[in-house]
């Protein structure tokens, strides 16, 4: 059986009503899941004998710059057993933008989620250490949001004085 079918079938058997959308663009399989079910589904993907998505390669988010459904959180998973990349997505519908952290499942998600928090201001519930990753602690904005200018906000990051 094709790996894609295997993944889809196994998921559909167990999570029919939590899957919102399935797309297959340029041979990348991507599954959109309901926000509440994401953690459960992720756990299933890792622990299911046939799938074993053991590595979380990346967590990020997309800012759609719309009022509703503003953010989509994206996870890239990899299974050594199937040699297959899977993309999970979950839309965050309303404020506050929060989602269950997957760090308990994959340790690697720890920093990815911190980065996403830093860049988009999405809060990950149950994250062990949700601090900013790159920007200094006292910085007030989230740079990758679409309403943040590329050149930054003047005076938000102070510089030392020039000597003399």
């Amino acid at each position: 059986m094709d790996i894609k079918d295997l993944v889809l079938q196994t998921l559909k058997e167990n999570f029919t009503d939590s899957i919102i959308e399935i797309t297959d663009f340029r041979n990348d399989l991507s599954i959109t899941v309901k926000q509440e079910k994401l953690f459960e589904l992720a756990k299933f993907l890792k622990e299911n004998e046939n799938l074993l998505f053991e590595m979380c390669k990346d967590v990020t988010a997309i800012d759609w710059a719309t009022r509703k459904n503003r953010f989509t959180v994206v996870y890239h998973l990899y299974s050594f057993k199937l040699n297959f990349n899977l993309r999970l997505k979950s839309n965050l519908e309303t404020e506050p933008y929060q989602i269950q952290s997957v760090t308990p499942i994959w340790q690697s998600a720890n920093w990815y989620e911190r980065e996403t928090y830093d860049m988009y201001g999405i809060e990950f519930i149950n994250h062990p250490d949700l601090r900013r990753m790159y920007m200094p602690e006292g910085f007030e904005y989230h740079p990758l949001r679409k309403d943040f200018p590329v050149l930054g906000i003047p005076e938000s990051l102070p510089l030392p004085q020039k000597p003399e």
């Binding site: 920007m135 740079p143 590329v150 050149l151 930054g152 990051l157 004085q161 020039k162």
Partner: peptide, 11 residues
């Protein structure tokens, strides 16, 4: 970009 000092002669 937002995080790069535009010339170190500022400080």
């Amino acid at each position: 970009s937002y995080n790069v000092v535009q010339g170190i002669d500022q400080f």
